[in-house]
């Protein structure tokens, strides 16, 4: 029955959950002790919701984010199979 066993239920058509791969880099990865993680999220959610799901907090202004390796914004929608990344301002060069 959908809703009871979420991960199993999501293998069937009409399920309301999607699988998202989340990646954290640099200081964020250390702070949250997460390198990469797969999560289940209700469909129709945004990047900000992914952050809330993994940290339990709202998304700070200073953090950069990407969906499928393209820069994104907190209100960028996510879909099943997406890779969502969060990282601090960059310091290359």
């Amino acid at each position: 029955m959908p809703g009871i066993f979420v991960s199993e239920a999501c293998q069937f058509e009409g399920c309301n959950f999607m699988t998202i791969r989340v990646r954290l880099f640099a200081s964020l990865s250390e702070q949250w002790q997460i390198d990469q993680k797969t999560i289940q999220l209700k469909e129709g959610q945004t990047v900000a919701a992914v952050w809330r799901e993994i940290t339990g907090e709202s998304l700070p202004d200073s953090i950069l984010m990407a969906v499928n390796m393209e820069y994104a914004r907190p209100d960028t929608p996510v879909k099943a199979g997406d890779e969502v990344a969060f990282f601090p301002p960059v310091t290359g060069g």
Binding site: F25, A26, P88, P89, V90, T91, G92
Partner: peptide, 25 residues
């Protein structure tokens, strides 16, 4: 590259390590 390419520097100092901040970089 400096403002957008995803690279992050961590410095090893004599007694500690620290991530470089974007402002100073």
């Amino acid at each position: 590259l400096k403002s957008r390419a995803p690279f992050w520097k961590k410095e090893k100092l004599p007694h500690k390590e620290r991530w470089v901040s974007n402002d100073e970089n």
